[in-house]
Amino acid sequence: MEVIFWMIIQVIVIAFAAPFFDGIARVLRARLQSRKGPPDFFQTYRDIIKLYKRGRTAPKCAHWFFTYAPYFMYATGAAMLACIPIAYSGYESIGFSDIFILVYLGALLKFVFGVASVDSGNPFAAVGGSREQMIGVFVEPVLIMSLLVVMLVAGTSNLVDIRAMVRAGEIGYFIPAFAVASISFLWAMYVESGRNPYDLAEAEQELQEGVLGEWSGSDFGIAHAALILKQFAMIGMFLAIFEPWNFTNPILALAVFLVKAGVFYVAAVFIDNFGSRYKLISSFRQNATFALGISTVALILYIVGA
C-alpha cells in the first residue's frame, strides 16, 4: 500500500516540478542565443496555465480520439513516471515497475500522438505524425537491444530488482556489455525525449507545427505538459538503470532524482540549441545505424560472455 502511496506522490511531485526545469532550460537557451528570454524560471508554468484557460477548438473532421488524446498522452506520461522506482525503490518490488511496461507505455504514447495527428485531418500534422512513427522505427530497436542486454545481465526485467542489483554492485559498469549498452541507451533516451536535432514534434517551420498543429488552448497546454513528462520519464529510465545512486528515504530520493534529472534536462540544451534538425532519411538514419551498431556490440559482448 505504501508503495502505491509513494508512487502517486512521486508522479505528482515530478509533474509539478518538471516545468520549472523547462523554464531553466529556456532561460539558458535564450542566453546562448544572445536573447533576453523569459524573466525567470517559471515561464513554462505561466504558459501552461495560460493555455489551459483558453477554449478548445477541433477541426470538423476530427473524431473523439483527437479530443481526448492530450489527456490520454498526459496519463500515459504519468504512468511512465509511476513505473520508475524513485520514491518507492526501498520497498519490495512490484510487478508494475517493469522494463517492458515502461517501453510499451512509451510506444503507446507515440502511437496515440501519431494517430491523433492523422485524425486531425491536417495533412502537415499527418505527415508529422507518420514521421514520429518513423522515429520509433529507428529508435526502438536500439532501445530494446540495450535493455535486452541489461535484462539478460540482471536476469530479470523488474526495475526495482535491477536497480537494487546495480546499487549492490552485483551488476554494473564492470561488465563490458552493460557499459556499452549504457552508451546506446543514452542516445535512444535523447532521441525519445524529442529534442533537436531529432525532434519533430515541434518542427514548426518544416512541417508547420508538425503533429501539434491542430491542438489549441487547453488541449495544446496538456499535450505540451505531456511531452515534458515524457522527457522526464525517459531521463528517469536512464537514471534508474544506469545511474541508480540515491537515498532510500522516499522524500530525499525524490529530491535527489529531481536534481539529477533536471541537470540532464537542462544540460541537453547544450546539444539541442546548436545545429539544425536532422532529416529523417539522411542524417538521422546514419546516426540511428551507428547507435544500433553500438547496441549490437553490447549484445555480442554479452553473448561471448565478456
Partner: peptide
C-alpha cells in the same frame, strides 16, 4: 534559412 531548419541559435545571432 537557418531557422527553418531548426537552427534557432544561428538565426538569433
Amino acid at each position: 534559412a537557418c531557422e527553418v531548419t531548426g537552427n534557432i541559435n544561428a538565426f538569433m545571432h
